[in-house]
Design a protein around this nucleic acid. Structure first.
Lengths: 158, 158
DNA sequence: TTTTGTCCTACTAAATTACTCAGTAATTGC
DNA sequence: GCAATTACTGAGTAATTTAGTAGGACAAAA
């Protein structure tokens, strides 16, 4: 899993959509101004988001973008995966030579870590972030505790 | 926390050092050949590692690099921080405009995630990887469980 | 004193990131 | 129908990062 600023831009934009898309679609021009991201870069990001069904575009005057699904059914991992392509490159089979086994050690380390991050981000939805913004701190703590508990349980079971 | 291939290279090289540095120093030329990393790039990485005291260089014939500390006192996070500079860029105060609070939401999300990753990688040492390579699978599972348990406990306490 | 290696600086190539420009397509209001 | 608005598309470009080259200077062993 890659954690780039590109993914952050996408999450920020999607959050903007979740917050402001309640009454009518939101234009990229608005998001561009709100978040300080260039319009054309947003267009590229939203092309990727659209192809994954995370957003729905409406053309013409008064148009803009809606979320493709409910905000509590869009995880942060969904968004990042959509824009970051995610061809996980650490697979030993094939390109890399893992003859002496050392490289495989770091590979498995990275795979493990990547999976941990993925699980973490899969358990956080756009809606969770919205709730967080609405000063519902208690709710937030519960959600976060539940998310990280999954991490713990997953490994303790092994 | 950044997870780049640069950091992976560094971890791989350090693991090579931990495995082959038991009898005498290891030359960068050896690591270069073993791991398929260019010599000059390794020199850059090791300059950073050396400045942080993670390795110790010995000049002249028969020279090379030793680990700067015992392998069980060097965490993966140490290595990545050394080469990746880590100027965490998500701090709201200052450069970015967080006027409407939306950006702050993603900032705190990223900060949280970054911290989770950091904790995860801090609890894994070079020695853990070496043990793992020695087919001590049971040991590995115990270590991993302990490491991830920290993640769980940290949040459950909140 | 020659060889082997670290150490140091600058430069270059490739990839990625972020952005620009110039359009086309669909929808609305006049 | 026509103009305005907005999503879409693709080519191109600047800035940054990553990775690798080149050419040394210094230190120590042979």
């Amino acid at each position: 899993m890659r954690l780039s600023t590109k993914g952050r831009y996408a999450v920020t934009a999607m959050l903007d959509l979740a917050l402001n898309g309640t009454d009518g679609p939101v234009t990229l021009a608005d998001i561009s101004e709100n978040q300080g991201i260039s319009l054309s870069y947003l267009e590229q990001l939203f092309a990727a988001l659209r192809s994954k069904g995370l957003v729905r575009g409406v053309r013409g005057p008064g148009g803009g973008y809606y979320l493709g699904r409910e905000s509590d059914e869009i995880s942060i991992a969904d968004i990042i995966c959509a824009v970051d392509e995610w061809v996980e490159f650490t697979r030993c089979k094939g390109k890399q030579n893992c003859h002496d086994g050392q490289r495989c050690l770091t590979h498995s380390l990275w795979d493990d870590l990547s999976q941990q991050i993925f699980i973490f981000l899969t358990d956080i939805t756009l809606d969770d972030l919205v709730q967080r913004g609405a000063e519902r701190e208690e709710e937030r703590r519960k959600k976060r505790a539940a998310a990280t508990q999954v991490l713990g349980l997953k490994e303790q079971a092994a």
